[in-house]
Simulated scan of single mutants.
Amino acid sequence: MLVTWMCCTVVDRPGFERGQRKWAGLLGEPGFRGQGGGWSRERPGVAHVFAFWESRSLYDSFMARSHPRLAASQSGTYRNAQSKLFDHRFDVKTGFEPRFGDTDLVRVAHCRVRVERADHFALMQEKVWNPAMAGSPGMVRGLFGQGRPDEFLVLSMWQSAAEHGKYQAERVRRLTVRAETEADVVDLSGDIVELEPAWTV
């Protein structure tokens, strides 16, 4: 499965939201699995959209055919757009499905790691971070994806900000030490996204 992540700064919120609803046109596109997104809780005016495709080839076909028409409705409503692609490596918890209806919040972490430590980073995600997240109340589902050899995405879906906040407060510092994260990671950025139900396709 291919994961696409688009982040942008919105300059015309009503126009952007009207355009976002037009992405319902994705339904029926070959290989399309689902899309959702919302607003950053930490950076006013920043929007995130996550989409899921069966394969890179089907996504490339969509980009060549239908994407320009769908994207035209949001032209001029945002700036500083960044799009990134990641291949799904494994689930966080089990049975990831690109559904957004039973979650309120997405935590996205974008990690650039030292190339020689990339295998260790992925192993620690699987053996240390995943069990901790999977066992946390309120954590619904998630995935671990890879872009370039030194670039990773951790996407986790939560029932509420309160549940995610408890996990952060109680576990993150201890898990960071145990997983030797500081030795692996060159740069870690991320956001907490409050989902907009109207954006779900």
Rank of each mutant, 00 (worst) to 15 (best):
R173D: 15
M6D: 14
A198N: 05
F50T: 07
E180W: 11
Q20F: 02
M157I: 00
V3K: 07
P68A: 11
G135Q: 09
V11P: 01
V92K: 04
G37K: 08
R107G: 14
S55V: 00
T181M: 13
S40N: 10
M1H: 10
V177R: 00
G36Y: 09
P30Y: 05
K93H: 01
N80P: 02
K84W: 07
V193S: 12
P68C: 13
F144I: 14
E151G: 03
E97K: 08
V177K: 00
G38K: 12
D187S: 13
R114P: 01
F62A: 06
Y59R: 11
P30T: 02
D104C: 00
S156Y: 05
Q35K: 13
V115E: 10
P149A: 06
R18S: 11
G34I: 07
M6W: 07
V201L: 10
S136V: 09
L27Q: 02
P197L: 05
P131K: 11
I192M: 13
A169E: 15
D60C: 04
A47H: 05
V46Q: 15
R69H: 04
V46C: 07
V11F: 02
M139S: 13
G95K: 01
Q35S: 10
G190H: 09
R173A: 15
R141G: 10
K166Q: 10
E29P: 01
L85N: 05
E42H: 06
A51V: 06
Q20K: 06
V115W: 12
G135R: 02
A81L: 15
V140C: 09
G45C: 03
G45Q: 07
D60H: 00
K22D: 03
L195H: 07
M124P: 03
F96A: 14
R79I: 09
M1R: 12
S75E: 12
R18P: 03
P137H: 04
Q159F: 01
R21E: 06
G28I: 02
S83F: 00
D102V: 07
H120N: 06
T200C: 03
T200P: 01
A81V: 15
V46D: 04
F62C: 12
M6V: 13
R117S: 07
A134V: 02
L27W: 01
E151H: 11
S83G: 09
R18D: 14
E42V: 14
K84V: 08
K127L: 03
Y78N: 12
L123Q: 11
S160K: 06
D150G: 09
M1I: 09
R41Y: 04
Q125R: 06
S73D: 15
R13Y: 01
A183Y: 02
L26N: 04
G37A: 10
R114G: 00
L175Y: 03
F90E: 06
S156M: 05
V177N: 00
G36K: 06
P30V: 07
R79W: 00
G25Y: 00
S73N: 04
V128M: 03
L155M: 14
A162V: 13
D91C: 12
D184N: 12
Q168K: 14
P68M: 12
A71I: 06
V128G: 03
S66I: 02
A24I: 10
A72Q: 14
F90C: 11
W53F: 11
Q74R: 15
V186C: 13
R178L: 13
V154W: 13
R171H: 14
W199I: 02
V177C: 01
